[in-house]
C-alpha cells in the first residue's frame, strides 16, 4: 500500500506538481474545443478559441505564481 501511494505521489508530482492549473487548464480547454468542433463551428474559430484558451491558462498561472502573498 505504501509503495502504491508513493507511486501515485510520484506521478502526481511529475504531471501536476505545484501548479494544478497547468494540468487542468489544457484538459478543460480541449474539452471545450471538442464541444465547439462537434457543434460544427468553422475550424478557424475553434482553432482560435483553443489558442486563446491555452494563452489564458498560461497567463492565469503566471498571475497566480507572481501575485504578492499576504
Amino acid at each position: 500500500m505504501r509503495y502504491l501511494r508513493s507511486f501515485g505521489a510520484f506521478w502526481y508530482d511529475f504531471l501536476v506538481g505545484d501548479r494544478p492549473e497547468l494540468f487542468l487548464g489544457p484538459v478543460v480547454a480541449l474539452a471545450l474545443a471538442w464541444l465547439l468542433a462537434t457543434a460544427r463551428l468553422p475550424a478557424g474559430v475553434v482553432g482560435a478559441f483553443l489558442f486563446a484558451a491555452v494563452v489564458a491558462v498560461g497567463a492565469t498561472s503566471l498571475v497566480l505564481t507572481t501575485r504578492p502573498r499576504t
Binding site: A37, V46, G47
Partner: peptide, 9 residues
C-alpha cells in the same frame, strides 16, 4: 490535440 478534437486546421 486540435486535430484530435476535430479541428481541420
Amino acid at each position: 490535440a486540435g486535430e484530435g478534437v476535430g479541428i481541420a486546421w
